[in-house]
Design a protein around this nucleic acid. Structure first.
Lengths: 197, 197, 197, 197
DNA sequence: ACGTAAGCGAGACGGTACGTCGCGTCTTACC
DNA sequence: GGTAAGACGCGACGTACCGTCTCGCTTACGT
């Protein structure tokens, strides 16, 4: 049941990959809630019993799949933001949107009205961390832990996630760059200029 | 199965009220998803079969309950915002938070990680409408339907909802006024000053 | 889950009867062990889930069915043996064999090599009681509870059951009367003549 | 999968012995039916897969184990009965009971209410052969194959097995000699005296 | 004594059946 | 007509064993 990726039995890795992909494609088609384990197993072309050898239930599979997607996001964003340039933030935004776009239908479903609150909460928490770090990086003179700061952090993270969801909802896809630019503008407006404060 | 409130059989109104309250209290205790119809019926002290005489399923009951809560919100907010004063916006914010606070545990659950995406989407849509009207009221010089405007609207509405959820998550309740003030400040920062533009 | 026969819901009685008959016919065809619950339900044309509303598992159903069959046996045999005639014993034997013959295929299976030990033990115990009563009726001068008596009782009951099983195993059915007569002869040989002792 | 004992690989013999003993001890503890292959393997301290290298399933293992036990019985009994003395029969009875006693808990389980019909049938068949030979040895004037003879044979064999099971059921073990004597008496009563007929 | 085929441990996998749970529908009888 | 009581069909759940199948390691046997 553990999730090491490296040194495992080939069959195990094959099976888990198949399950992961089955889940993703099913979510794209009909959302998460209405999926039943038999469907996942069918699509992955493994036996239902085998599913339970690897995951406790469909929520467990979702959890682990989520972790993997998130870890594809985290590292590069962190790297980008190490450069203290204004450009870095824009790059990070672009990277975020592009990454989301890679699994667009998946994220659209998970963030939509028949989506999954836990998933959104997970992403939200992640975004909050990023924004918090950015605050610190810009040495913004808000005492951490302040009421003011907490509210601002959550406001930005939630707004950010909201716009991402909005972007995914559009019938015809809007260019990443345009959305990133507008988000960047919003962030600059809302994040107090360190020199000015 | 219809939802008129006024002229119905007394027994019917009693039954529906009991079901509504049962649902609310159960959501506060364990969230919506894990609730089963039998529990609602038990707590409402009615027969399970009777439940189905009134509602298609638990989602139907939630839907109708949701509508009722929302309609308690809408009217006053609309009224408040008719006054073209800066103060009006703050009042509206205060009213929103107070209203949410009346059913704090309910909203906390529905907006939390084991919450319900449809519910959140519903609220989000409502907030977006309010913010859009406010934009129009302030005659902000953004061409409606623009990319820019759509993004800003969603950003603000989502940020707003995010902060509300954050507020509900706090162990010890923060004063409505403080949160409203900070939100007001954020809104003033982010909504372009009509005179300046 | 209780087994009252009288005052129950009509549907319940219909369902249980169907299950009982399904079980009996299935046992005749393939023995008890290899039967699965789904088969019983299929043949009784009820849903598998409903089966579990009435019986804990297939063993429970067997148990209760067994009780019913046995109670069809007991009463008349007891009555017959109340007459202190030699003829009475023969009559009882005939009745026993005839009763078994009514469900011949069922008993054949349950007493055969793919049969069920618990069932055989059940019958054996019943026969032992009958024989013990007969001993008492004939005022046989064996101190009850003696080693001698216990062994004799068991020997007769087991021999009796063995012959019944043997009779059922025959391809072409032997006349009840012949078998009963021979058994009667054996019993007279083995049961010490009260006058002689 | 074959069962030669002599010339096999040491490891194979070790493994099979371990499995046989594991089976026997498990049967003593909980009867045969409820045993699962994993348990046998665990107790024998071999891998479950290895079990299937040697036996088709647990019934196969039982079968072979049974054969071994039976062959320990047969030979001496046959020998004893060659002597045409009355004493020989008693000796054979004693030997039978003693042999059964060596694996008392095993036989107790296999012949008890949670026992195995196939096993009992097996023993019964064996006993029937013995009794049949004894009939022949005593030149009893019953035409073989008669209804009368068949019934008597089965009656005696079944009675015999029944008493053996009864003996095993007793909490405190009764002396072999007493039971053998009583059985002997029964046999003499029931088997028609050749001289007299 | 040693190389090699066999035995074996470890464990993934496809199956089948289990007993349970929750759903939504229905019927009967009561008020 | 609104309810209570509860049987029923249905479908999914998570679990338990089954028998089969690699894959390497280890060990007894034959030369």
């Amino acid at each position: 049941m553990s999730s090491q990726t490296g040194e495992m039995d080939l069959r195990v890795r094959r099976t888990r990959l198949a399950l992961r992909n089955a889940l993703l494609s099913l979510i794209e088609e009909k959302g998460f809630d209405s999926i039943i384990v038999q469907e996942i197993a069918d699509r992955a072309m493994i036996n239902r019993g085998t599913f339970y050898k690897h995951y406790r239930d469909k929520y467990d599979l979702l959890e682990q799949t989520m972790q993997e997607l998130l870890s594809e996001l985290s590292a590069p964003v962190a790297t980008l933001l190490q450069v203290p340039e204004d450009q870095a933030v824009l790059d990070a935004l672009v990277h975020w949107l592009e990454q989301v776009a890679r699994y667009a239908s998946f994220y659209r479903m998970m963030l939509g009205r028949s989506g999954n609150a836990a998933f959104a909460a997970h992403l939200l928490r992640y975004l909050e961390t990023i924004v918090a770090e950015e605050y610190r990086r810009q040495r913004i003179k808000q005492r951490p832990g302040t009421l003011e700061e907490s509210i601002n952090l959550r406001f930005i993270a939630a707004g950010f996630l909201g716009v991402t969801a909005w972007w995914l909802e559009q019938k015809q896809p809007l260019p990443v760059r345009d959305v990133a630019t507008q988000l960047h503008a919003l962030l600059k407006t809302i994040m107090p200029d360190p020199k000015a404060s």
